[in-house]
Simulated scan of single mutants.
Amino acid sequence: MSYLLNALSMLIQVAFAMIATLFLVRVAAEATRADFHNPLSQFIYRYTNPVLRPIRRVLPNWRRINLAALLMVWLTLLIERLLIFGLGGFMPLLPGLLVLSLADLLDFVLLFYIIVIFGWSLLTMLSADPYQPIIRLAGAIIEPVLRPLRGRMVVGSIDFSPTVVVIVLLLARILMAAPLFDLGSRLAQGG
C-alpha cells in the first residue's frame, strides 16, 4: 500500500473508532445505569439518540443491553472493514466480512474495557477529583467488571483487581478475538 493509502486508512480507522466508541459508551452506560445527570452521559445520549431512536422501535433493549447501539457499533466496524478492504483493492466474501466484523466488535469491546480500566486506575492513583464527569462515568462502566475481585486482590493498600482484570481481558483478546480474526480472514479469501 502506498503512503497516501496508509494515511487514508489510518484516518478512516480513527474516524470509525470514534463513532464506534460513542455508541459503545452508550451501551456500557445504559447497562451499568451510569448517572444520567453526568454531562458526558448527556452528551452521549444527545448525539446517539437521533440514530438509535428509529432502530429501537424495531430492536428493543434486552434486559439492560441497548441492542440498537450494539448493532450500530457492529455496523460501524463492518463499514470500516469494508472501506479498508476497498482501499486495498480487495473485496472479501460476505461470510468472511461478517465474521471479521464480529471479531472486530469483540476485540473493540475488550480493548475499550482495557483502556477504560487503565485510564480510570491511573486517574484514581493520581488522586484526581472523584467528582469529575469522566472519572464518574468510567467508574460506573467498569464497576461491574471489577466487583467480583474487589477487595480480594489487595496487597498492603494497593488493590490489584484492575491489573488482574486487564490481564484476563488481554488473554481474551488472544484466545477469543484472534482465532475469530483468523477464521474470518480464511472465509474472506474463500478458503
Results as ranks from 00 to 15, higher is better:
Tyr113Ala: 03
Ala177Leu: 08
Trp62Asp: 00
Ile135Asn: 06
Asp182Lys: 09
Leu122Asn: 04
Leu180Trp: 10
Leu77Pro: 10
Arg56Asn: 01
Ala68Pro: 01
Ala29Val: 01
Leu40Cys: 02
Leu149His: 15
Asp35Ala: 01
Leu11Lys: 01
Leu22Gln: 08
Ile174Asn: 07
Leu59Asp: 05
Leu82His: 11
Gly86Tyr: 13
Leu67Asn: 04
Gly119Val: 11
Val116His: 06
Ile84Asn: 12
Leu83Asp: 12
Ala178Lys: 07
Arg150Asn: 14
Pro144Lys: 08
Gly156Trp: 00
Tyr47Met: 11
Ala68Gly: 08
Tyr113Lys: 00
Ile141Arg: 14
Asn49Arg: 11
Ile135Cys: 05
Pro92Asn: 10
Glu30Asn: 05
Arg152Ala: 04
Val145Thr: 14
Trp120Ile: 02
Val165His: 06
Phe16Lys: 01
Leu183Asp: 11
Ala7His: 07
Ala29Met: 05
Leu98Ala: 15
Gly96Val: 04
Arg152Thr: 13
Leu93Gln: 15
Arg147Tyr: 15
Leu110Tyr: 08
Thr124Gly: 01
Phe85Leu: 14
Pro39Asp: 02
Leu59Ser: 06
Leu146Asn: 14
Arg186Cys: 13
Gly184Ala: 10
Ile65Gly: 03
Arg150Val: 11
Ile115Ala: 09
Leu93Met: 15
Phe85Val: 14
Leu126Tyr: 06
Gln13Met: 07
Leu180Arg: 10
Glu143Pro: 15
Ile84Phe: 10
Leu75Ile: 10
Phe85Tyr: 12
Gln42Asp: 12
Ala68Arg: 02
Leu22Val: 09
Arg136Ser: 07
Phe43Thr: 07
Leu149Gly: 14
Leu87Val: 13
Ala7Pro: 04
Phe118Val: 12
Asp182Val: 10
Arg136His: 07
Asn6Leu: 00
Ala17Ile: 05
Asn61Val: 00
Ala31Pro: 13
Met18Val: 12
Met18Asp: 11
Ser185His: 10
Glu80Val: 10
Ala20Cys: 06
Gly139Val: 03
Arg33Glu: 13
Arg147Ile: 15
Leu4Lys: 00
Ala69Asn: 03
Met72Val: 15
Ala177Cys: 12
Ala28Ser: 13
Ala178Pro: 08
Asn38Lys: 02
Arg57Cys: 06
Met125Asp: 04
Ile158Thr: 09
Pro144Val: 03
Arg53Ser: 06
Phe85Cys: 11
Gln189Val: 10
Phe108Thr: 05
Val165Leu: 14
Ser157Asn: 13
Leu93Ile: 15
Ile142Glu: 14
Trp74Cys: 09
Leu82Asp: 11
Thr21Ala: 10
Ala20Thr: 03
Ala7Arg: 05
Leu106Ala: 12
Val168Ile: 14
Leu123Pro: 03
Ser127Leu: 09
Trp120Arg: 03
Leu87Asp: 12
Ala68Glu: 00
Gln42His: 09
Thr163Lys: 11
Leu67Met: 10
Leu67Ser: 02
Leu169Ser: 05
Leu22Pro: 08
Leu180Tyr: 09
Arg53Lys: 09
Pro162Leu: 12
Leu169Phe: 07
Val154His: 03
Thr76His: 09
Ala29Leu: 04
Ile135Leu: 06
Arg63Lys: 14
Met153Gln: 14
Leu126Arg: 06
Leu100Asp: 02
Glu80Trp: 08
Ile79Ala: 12
Pro39Ala: 02
Ile135Ala: 06
